[in-house]
């Protein structure tokens, strides 16, 4: 499954696709959830929620493949 299909599936509510998207962006989320070098679980949860919101609200760019 390529990224566009995965994103589309997640936007349609496929939980497995959402979980895969979160796993894909886990390193970014872990990095941003660190406070003074320590992973803040509450912040991490909030950022995961924000990621799911971003998935739902993102509009894929319309590109014609050359």
């Amino acid at each position: 499954m390529d990224f566009r299909d995965l994103l589309h599936a997640a936007q349609c509510g496929d939980r497995i696709a959402c979980a895969q998207m979160l796993k894909l962006y886990a390193p970014l989320l872990e990095r941003e959830a660190k406070v003074d070098g320590v992973l803040d679980q509450e912040l991490y949860s909030e950022l995961c929620e924000e990621t799911l919101r971003a998935i739902l609200q993102f509009k894929s760019p319309e590109v014609t493949e050359q």
Binding site: R4, E50, R53, A54, V63
Partner: peptide
């Protein structure tokens, strides 16, 4: 290159901005 990579990069940039603001 390619629609898949373009979409991925666009989403990643969008997500990074949202995550930074939320944090």
């Amino acid at each position: 290159c390619g629609i898949d990579n373009i979409t991925r990069n666009a989403f990643t940039a969008y997500l990074k901005l949202r995550i930074e603001r939320k944090r």
